[in-house]
Design a protein around this nucleic acid. Structure first.
Length: 574
RNA sequence: CGGGGCGUAGCGCAGCCUGGUUAGCGCACUAGACUGGGGGUCUAGGGGUCGCCGGUUCGAAUCCGGCCGCCCCGACCA
């Protein structure tokens, strides 16, 4: 491909409204352009990368025995009405009406539609298992799109669905997908973790996220330094902490005056006791009632875990007025002793002996509080796991990371098939409900995610497997010798099936080098009169940060050298 | 949805507070010359309903009101 014939508009300065690294680089390097909030168009370079991401996923899905389908994005309301999601999906669903005033929506995900396909075609256990996938544009009216391609309202997703005769068989399908995901992300050169995740509103019995580790990620995770354990903070567990406080039965509860010291840090200093000896008590509004959540003074409540422990989808901190009503004291002096209502205590807080708590009376605390003796509470893991906590599976230390969710796999059970009549006849002729799994990968999000992990000050550094071109030839000057050499290299590479971009613009060398670094093609060949005098061209990998580190390769050997390097890099990741 | 910010040429910005004739600067773009290995220099150009609607005023990019759009933090996120 020749630069002069291509739309490759690079920008020296980034648009002011782009902040994340991938967003800035995708705009500057001319891969995408914004058409609206969370709505992007792909220019030629962007499409090339998008297609590479899709191809890798397609190859791995096919290898895993899944078959590609293409379902509509424009959908009559009846399917979501049947599953109930027409009402529960809320404002995230893009809804529209046709000319006959019928209700339609744009597909945010396709469990119902695929279930409809399967229930019509599958009648017998002999037809199972089945696995289908599609790569398609999805629409979600996100409350807050952000980060360019990282969170869009229109985006491209690979969604796969598997159908089974039993939970056991579904687990096998899930395992097959897990491997296909690993292979896909490995081939893309990503540093990621597979983590235990919350199934959320999807329902179902289990799920795992594939989180790409980057500082700019919006998800928080923990991973064990030694074993395979890794989890989203929303579901992370830790090994129990050792009890704190003196052995033996504490003295009776004592009420102490703690004037104007509400925070744990202040009271800790005032009473000269470490924060871990405190029971921090927070009042939450949970499903219409006020609930007291208790964690150790040096820990924080994780609201998603608290909500799950209570069997609810969400909880909110109570207002100051509600706190006063529930405890009879100002915020900062709540405590479990004598609290009228449900009390949930974190497992590690329940292990504090001789504790300090709020007294449910302004400016007062209680000391020598003993869990079980002075109050009763439900015990659950409701605190945030911290770096340095111990792994629940092997006891080694846990690390904290930030990640971008690139994929998510779910065991769905019969959530959709039972609501929509997805049934089959088993060997004995008895009607059974089909068991389901679903599996998503954010295809367009991956384009940005890869950049978040593969870039430097000068631009993008594509892995060979995803690069829009594998080789970029920079032609310096307009002399016949240079033109002939460039054409020779270009022809040789194309014959070998390698994608090559030739910068044949009438620009100064500096401009071409800067643009090449920005666009991030992995191998760069510079053809200039200087080198040609001795029969050489220059080869520089994009991964080499020093612009002066180029390798001289004889002109007649350059094509072979490049072909070998491209194949080696592709082979190593495939 | 709560909080904050922004909207002036394709991109980055100044001007607005304190209203006043042809609305500026850098990059990019067009033409020419010089230049030619890491975003060059000079000369001459083209490109704007100052987000939209209304109001105040002799006069509005500038003041006032309303609306729209976009970004960031948070809530939210199958």
């Amino acid at each position: 491909m020749r630069y002069r014939n291509s739309l490759l508009p690079t920008l020296k300065e980034a648009p002011a409204d782009a902040t994340s690294v991938s967003h800035v680089l995708l705009l500057r390097a001319g891969f995408i352009r914004r058409m609206g909030a969370g709505i992007y168009g792909f220019l030629p370079l962007g499409v090339r990368v998008l297609n590479k991401v899709a191809s890798i996923i397609r190859e791995e899905m096919n290898r895993a025995g899944s078959e590609e389908v293409l379902l509509p994005a424009l959908l009559p309301a009846e399917y979501f009405q049947e599953s109930g999601r027409w009402d529960t999906f809320g404002d995230t669903l893009f809804r529209l009406k046709d000319r006959k005033r019928g209700d339609y929506h744009l597909g945010p995900t396709h469990e119902e539609i695929i279930t409809d396909v399967i229930r019509r075609e599958v009648k017998s256990y002999r037809d199972l298992p089945r696995s289908l996938y599609q790569i398609q544009t999805k629409f979600r009216d996100e409350p807050r799109p952000r980060g360019g391609l990282l969170r869009c309202r229109e985006f491209i997703m690979k969604d796969a669905y598997s159908f089974h005769v039993s939970e056991d068989d579904a687990k096998q399908g899930y395992e097959t997908m897990r491997l296909a995901y690993r292979r896909s992300f490995d081939r893309m050169g990503l540093d990621y973790r597979m983590v235990k995740a919350d199934s959320g509103a999807m329902g179902g019995s289990g799920s795992a996220e594939f989180q790409v580790l980057v500082q700019s990620g919006e998800d928080l995770l923990v991973a064990c330094k030694s074993c395979e354990y890794a989890a989203n903070l929303e579901v992370a567990e830790s090994a129990p902490l050792a009890p704190v406080g003196p052995d033996g039965e504490p003295p009776p509860v004592e009420r102490v005056h703690t004037p104007k010291v509400g925070s744990i840090a202040d009271v800790s200093r005032f009473l000269k006791l470490p924060e871990e000896r405190f029971l921090k008590s927070l009042v939450y509004l949970a499903g219409g009632e006020l609930v007291l959540a208790v964690v150790r003074g040096d820990h924080e409540v994780h609201e998603v875990k608290l909500a799950r422990a209570l069997g609810l989808s969400e909880v909110h901190l109570a207002s100051a007025a509600d706190v006063a009503k529930a405890t009879g004291a100002a915020v900062g002096f709540a405590g479990p002793v004598g609290f009228k209502g449900r009390v949930v205590i974190d497992r590690d807080a329940a292990n504090v002996r001789d504790a300090v708590t709020g007294a449910n009376e302004s400016d007062h605390h209680l000391t020598h509080v003993s869990v079980g003796r002075d109050f009763n509470a439900e015990v659950a893991q409701i605190r945030q796991v911290l770096a340095g906590d111990r792994c629940p599976s092997c006891g080694a230390e846990l690390d904290c990371y930030r990640g971008i969710e690139a994929g998510h796999i779910f065991l769905l059970g019969t959530r959709y098939t039972s609501a929509m009549g997805g049934k089959y006849l088993d060997e004995t002729g008895k009607e059974q409900t089909i068991v389901m799994g679903c599996y998503g990968i954010g295809v367009s999000r991956l384009v940005a995610t890869v950049i978040e992990q593969h870039h430097d000050q000068n631009g993008i550094r594509w892995p060979m497997s995803l690069a829009p071109f594998q080789v970029q030839v920079v032609a310096l000057g307009e002399s016949p010798e240079v033109k002939a050499a460039v054409a020779q290299i270009e022809g040789g590479l194309e014959q070998a099936g390698i994608e090559v971009l030739v910068d044949d613009r009438e620009e100064r060398p500096g401009v071409k080098f800067k643009d090449a670094d920005l666009v991030g093609v992995p191998l760069r060949v510079t053809v200039g009169e200087k080198g040609l005098k001795t029969g050489h061209v220059e080869l520089k990998p994009r991964s080499e940060p020093d612009p002066k580190k180029v390798e001289l390769v004889p002109l007649d050997a350059i094509v072979e050298t490049l072909v070998l390097r491209v194949r080696r890099e592709l082979g190593g990741k495939a």
